[in-house]
């Protein structure tokens, strides 16, 4: 289960609209309790590291940015619980490309942005055997 406060949801939507027609991306910072429930406290926007001409349908958070996100989370007493990105003019469902590049355990939030306006916002977790995403929000 993931708890995504309205403030974080609105911030992700805003990032998606600001980045349109390109994909935005960033980290989800928060805590996970003993039951496995994740509570997101805030988002950390990260510049899309893909080549300019690919950003309309791809994003990457490189290892340096990943390390910086982990450091920021630790300084806040939080952890990196997952990541978000936008799907410009595309549904808020994971693509095969998303699944191929995902890791287990993390929450992956996707916001659809249609003609510059945010729409559906969903969250997914990769199955342990990497075969599918499980919808959690």
């Amino acid at each position: 289960m993931i708890l995504l406060p309205d403030s974080a949801s609105m911030a992700i939507r805003s990032e998606g609209e600001r980045s349109y027609p390109n994909e935005c991306c960033g980290a989800l910072l928060g805590e996970m309790d003993e039951s496995g429930a994740r509570a997101i406290s805030e988002i950390l926007p990260i510049d899309n590291g893909r080549e300019t001409e690919e950003r309309y349908h791809r994003f990457v958070i490189g290892p340096d940015d990943f390390m910086a996100a982990e450091k920021t989370a630790r300084e806040l007493g939080l952890g990196v619980i997952g990541f978000y990105h936008s799907h410009p003019d595309h549904p808020a469902v994971p693509s095969d490309y998303d699944r191929d590049h995902a890791l287990p355990w993390y929450s992956y939030v996707i916001v659809a942005v249609e003609s510059g306006v945010s729409g559906d916002l969903t969250s997914w977790e990769l199955d342990a055997d990497r075969s599918q995403f499980i919808k959690e929000l």
Binding site: C25, V60, I61, P63, F66, H85, S95, Y97
Partner: peptide
Amino acid sequence: PAIAGGSGP
């Protein structure tokens, strides 16, 4: 890890 994805081909 590096984190990557995108809306499809």
